[in-house]
Amino acid sequence: MAELVSLLPPSTNNAYQGWKLAAWALTVLAAGTIIPALIHIGLPDGGAGVIAGLDLSQGRHTIISLFAWAGTTQFVWGLILLAISLRYRSLVPLALALLVTERALHTWNMWGPKGTPLAGGHHPPEAWVTLGSVPVLAMLLALSLRRARGG
């Protein structure tokens, strides 16, 4: 009979030598990923109208479905970030590098050629948060790759 493998293997925290600030910031980023995900999943319009200010008069069902889908993916990503930040810290640099990549691509998609603002030049709140997050995430990535003082 085959042996079962644990869903959560032993911690790899002992291998992380970067700045603790970067790992703890990843915990905050995980919460900042999970909470909006629950909004996208839980609100009747997924936040598309009441938060993002999208016009739902045409394509309402499609827009709400896409917000729910994005929220589901975002929720799982947030759980992974939380597990890394609390238990698998040797993966903090990788997680931050992936976050920088994700946020940079989101920024390009929101502010670049595809990122036409809504009526009146309005960008949803997420567009502004994403724009500001890229340099902060890059700084956290750099700190996670530097050996912490005294360590």
Rank of each mutant, 00 (worst) to 15 (best):
W108C: 06
A95I: 01
P10K: 13
F75E: 07
L7F: 15
A2F: 11
T33G: 13
P135R: 00
H61V: 01
P124L: 04
T116C: 02
G115C: 03
D45H: 01
L145K: 11
L94M: 13
S90G: 03
S6T: 03
A83M: 13
A104H: 01
S144L: 07
P124C: 06
W128L: 15
N109W: 10
L131I: 02
L81K: 02
N109Y: 09
T130F: 10
T12Q: 10
H61L: 02
E126W: 14
I51C: 04
L26C: 09
L98H: 05
T33Y: 07
N109G: 07
L96Q: 11
Q17G: 14
L66A: 15
L54S: 03
T73A: 15
A104F: 09
T33W: 10
G151Q: 05
A23E: 07
R146Q: 14
S90W: 00
T33D: 09
A15E: 13
N109Q: 12
A83S: 04
P44C: 04
L105K: 05
P113F: 05
R146T: 03
F67R: 07
A148D: 13
L145S: 00
I39T: 15
L82V: 11
G121P: 00
L29V: 08
I80Q: 05
S57P: 00
T101Q: 01
Y88R: 00
H61P: 00
R147M: 09
N14R: 03
R60E: 14
P117H: 04
L82A: 13
A2V: 12
D55M: 06
L54R: 06
L43H: 03
A15K: 12
T116A: 02
L98K: 05
E3R: 11
G32C: 09
E126N: 13
L56Q: 00
A83P: 06
E126L: 10
G121F: 03
L96F: 12
F75R: 01
T33E: 14
L99D: 02
E102D: 02
P117S: 04
A15H: 01
K20H: 07
G132H: 05
R60A: 11
R146S: 12
M110P: 09
A25L: 10
T62G: 00
A30L: 10
G71D: 02
L143I: 08
S57Y: 02
L26P: 00
H40P: 06
A68F: 08
S6E: 15
L79E: 04
V76K: 01
A68R: 15
A31W: 15
V5E: 14
T130P: 05
A48Y: 12
L7P: 08
T12Y: 11
K114Q: 14
A37C: 10
L96R: 13
I63Y: 06
L81G: 06
A22E: 10
T130K: 07
T101W: 15
A97K: 04
L8T: 15
W77I: 11
P44T: 12
